[in-house]
């Protein structure tokens, strides 16, 4: 599904060069659950943003189902993200002014065709993440764990091919973290491809495969199951 070939990333800010990724190569198959592990501040988010097409590599190729995404323009990438990618961020990134339900429906604001059963689908996802009682709450009335579960439901509303999560449990206590990871297991069981970025071993171990980065390169790959 995914193939990175020699992906490099260097930030250029205020005339300073910050090389972060020095040439990353790996593949992810359809339906895989992969964790990318690295210590803090070493380019995990950078890599995930590139995988999510939120940022472009300075060099290298990013093949998604055979298409080189580095060659697509902004509009094409936006449409691809809307259709094929779901994002879960460390800080949830929910819109506090609208209800839980509307947060989940938000990606549909940008789809070409609005699904007829959108509402039922959102409610179903909400029950999957165990928040059926909170449909009409505003996100800031929920706990961190609950907010992250809403964010997961939002990421799934468009039936994405790929779920990308950047430290999804980074801001949560261990109980909430456990709940989130269980949901990820469930999503994976239903056949979706997941890439999780984390610096925590326990989180990474829930995946089928761990890719460890070091010095901006792939240091090691472990297959767990």
């Amino acid at each position: 599904m995914i193939e990175l070939k020699g992906v490099k990333k260097t930030y250029y800010t205020d005339g300073k060069e910050t090389p972060v990724l020095y040439g990353i190569d790996f593949k992810v198959e359809e339906g895989e659950y992969v964790a990318i592990m690295a210590p803090s501040g070493t380019g995990k988010s950078t890599l995930l943003n590139i995988l999510g097409t939120l940022d472009k590599p300075t060099e290298g190729k990013y093949l998604f189902r055979g298409r080189d995404l580095t060659e697509l323009n902004d509009d094409e990438l936006s449409k691809l993200r809307n259709k094929s990618f779901g994002f879960v961020f460390q800080l949830f990134n929910l819109l506090n002014r609208v209800s839980v339900l509307d947060n989940i429906l938000l990606p549909l604001l940008y789809t070409e065709v609005y699904p007829k059963n959108a509402r039922e689908k959102a409610l179903k996802l909400l029950s999957m993440v165990g928040l059926s009682e909170r449909v009409h709450y505003k996100p800031n009335a929920l706990s961190g764990g609950q907010q992250q579960r809403v964010a997961i439901a939002r990421a799934l509303i468009n039936d994405p091919d790929l779920l990308l999560a950047d430290e999804p449990t980074g801001n949560l206590d261990s109980k909430s973290s456990g709940e989130i990871l269980e949901i990820f297991d469930e999503i994976h069981k239903r056949g979706r491809t997941i890439i999780v970025v984390t610096h925590e071993r326990e989180v990474a171990e829930r995946a089928e495969r761990i890719i460890t980065l070091k010095d901006g390169k792939v240091f090691k790959e472990e297959r767990l199951k």
């Binding site: 999510g52 939120l54 509009d75 936006s78 449409k79 993200r81 259709k83 990606p107 940008y110 939002r154």
Partner: peptide
Amino acid sequence: IGLKRAIGATQKD
């Protein structure tokens, strides 16, 4: 805005 761009809003949106 960043979130919306991530979930698929185009510049035009």
